[in-house]
Nucleic acid binder design. Structure first.
Lengths: 245, 245
DNA sequence: CGCGAGCTTGATGCCGATCAATGCATGTGG
DNA sequence: CCACATGCATTGATCGGCATCAAGCTCGCG
C-alpha cells in the first residue's frame, strides 16, 4: 500500500515511530516528540509477512500487538464447525491483535492479503510504558474503543442492510480509509477476493459479483477485475442513507 | 436481576467495590484487597435508571463508564436514516460506555429494560488510577478486548447463521451469563421484547416468535410469554455447532 | 371492562442462496 | 510457445428462508 522504500534507506534510517510516515494514524497520535523516542525503543522488531501467510492464528498465545506498516490484512473467526467470518480488513497504520488481550490467546486468524510488513509491539512493554505516558495510554484506549464502535457499525450493516447497501457501505469505508492515507478516493485495487468481501458482508460471492455488475450498469462504478473506479460516490452514499426496507 | 438488598443494608454498608458481590465479575477482578480500597474512592456515585429510561444517548458527551449493579440494559446504534440495531444486552457486573472513549461522545443509546442501578466510574479518574495499579489496568484492557471478541462472535452469528441457529446461540449465551451470576441456567425471564431480540439477531419479531414456537414443539423449550424454561440445552448446542448450510 | 402493547400464527412474495455453466487471467510443464 | 490446469469472476435459472402483510390472541393495567 505504501511507497516502496529502497533497501539503502532501510539500512540507514532507524526503524522508529519518530520517522514513520504513519505516526499520525497509528499508536503515537498525541504523543509528544520527546516521549515518542521511548516508543521507538519499545517497537523494536519488524516482521515481514508474505501474501497468504498468517501473522497469527486463532489459539496462538498472545504476546504482542502489531501495527501494519505496509500491506493489507484480513482477520477471520471460525466457529467449531466450519463456518468462517471475515471480521475486518486492516491497512497501514491499523493495529492487529487486540482480540488476544482478554484471554492471552488470539481468537482470530490474521492473514496477509499481499506481501506486508508489521511493527511488533510487545504488549507488556506497551502497558508498562503507557503507565508512564498518559498520552500513550489515552491513544491506546481510543484505538480499542474505536474498534468496538467499528464493530457496532458492522453489526448494523449485517443486521439491517440489504446486499447493495452493504456493498455501498463497504466501498465508501474503504475509500475513506484510503483517502486518509493519501491515496486516491476514486481509484482503488481490491486486495481481497469476492468471496472474502462476501464473508465480511454476510453475502455469497455471486451476490457480491452481481452487485458490482449492477453498480457498473448504473454508472456508479467501473469494475475491471479488482480494479475499481468510483464514478458516482454520491450515489453510493445515497444507497447507504436511504433505507429501502 | 440480583437478590434485593434491604434498605437497611444499603444505608449501613458503604457503597464500595470491596463489599460488592459482583467484584468477581466486574472491574476489580485481579485487584488486591489493599488496592481495591482505592477503587472504592473512585466509584463514588450510584445512579438509578428506571425501566425505559436511557442511561446515556448517542451523541452525549462521554465522561464516565458505568458498571451495571442491578437490572438489565440494551445498547442500540442508529444510522442516519431510521435503522436501529441492538448491539448488546448488559447485566450485572458488565460495563457500559466503552464506546465513548474513542470520540469523547457516546455512539450508542443505553436503555434500562428494567429498573436498574449502575455504579458511575469517572473515566479520567479510572485512567489515573490504572496508571498506578497495573492489575486494574490489565483488567480494564481485558474487558475492552473481550468486548471486541464478543462483537466478532455476533458478526459471525449475523453473517453466517440461520434464524434458529441465531436464536439457539442467543439463548445459550444468556443462560451462560446467568449461571455465572448464580442464577438458574434453565429457567429465565427475558427482559426484552421479541422485537429487541430480533433487532439484536438481525431478524424480524415474527421470526423470533416462530422460532420460540418451533423450539417448544420440538421439546427444547417451554415458553410462556417471557418465561423460558430450557428442557434440552444439548439440542440448542447442537443447533449452534452443526452447520445446516 | 375495555384498551393497547406485545405476541402468535397464517398466507404470500421477494431477496439472496444455491446450483450450474462459462469466461478470463495467470502460471506451469511439456 | 502452446496446452492445460487452476483460481477467480460472471451470469443465468431455480429454490428456499425469512420478510412482509394481515388477523386474531393474551395479558396487564387504567
Amino acid at each position: 500500500m505504501n511507497a516502496a522504500v529502497s533497501p539503502f534507506r532501510i539500512e540507514t534510517f532507524k526503524v522508529a515511530c519518530s520517522n514513520c510516515n504513519l505516526r499520525e494514524l497509528c499508536l503515537p497520535v498525541g504523543v509528544s516528540d520527546e516521549q515518542i523516542e521511548r516508543l521507538d525503543r519499545l517497537v523494536g522488531a519488524r516482521r515481514s509477512v508474505p501474501r497468504g501467510d498468517a501473522l497469527f492464528h486463532a489459539g496462538d498465545g498472545f504476546a504482542s500487538l502489531y501495527a501494519v506498516r505496509t500491506g493489507f490484512f484480513k482477520t477471520c473467526v471460525a466457529s467449531e464447525d466450519g463456518r468462517e467470518q471475515v471480521t475486518g480488513f486492516q491497512m497501514a497504520g491499523e493495529l492487529l491483535g487486540l482480540d488476544g488481550i482478554g484471554t492471552e490467546r488470539h481468537t482470530v486468524d490474521a492473514v496477509a492479503l499481499e506481501d506486508s510488513q508489521v511493527c511488533v509491539i510487545p504488549y507488556h512493554q506497551l502497558t508498562d510504558l503507557s503507565r508512564e505516558l498518559s498520552d500513550l495510554q489515552r491513544q491506546f484506549h481510543k484505538i480499542m474503543s474505536r474498534e468496538i464502535v467499528r464493530d457496532h457499525g458492522v453489526m448494523l450493516l449485517l443486521g439491517s442492510m440489504r446486499a447493495e447497501e452493504r456493498m455501498a457501505a463497504f466501498l465508501l469505508n474503504l475509500t475513506q480509509r484510503l483517502r486518509a492515507r493519501g491515496f486516491s478516493a476514486t481509484d482503488l485495487v481490491l486486495r481481497m477476493t469476492r468471496e472474502e468481501i462476501g464473508s465480511y458482508l454476510g453475502l455469497k460471492l455471486e451476490t457480491v459479483s452481481r452487485a458490482f455488475s449492477k453498480f457498473q450498469d448504473d454508472g456508479i462504478l467501473e469494475v475491471r477485475q479488482r480494479q475499481i473506479r468510483i464514478l458516482d460516490a454520491a450515489a453510493l452514499q445515497k444507497l447507504v442513507n436511504v433505507p429501502s426496507r
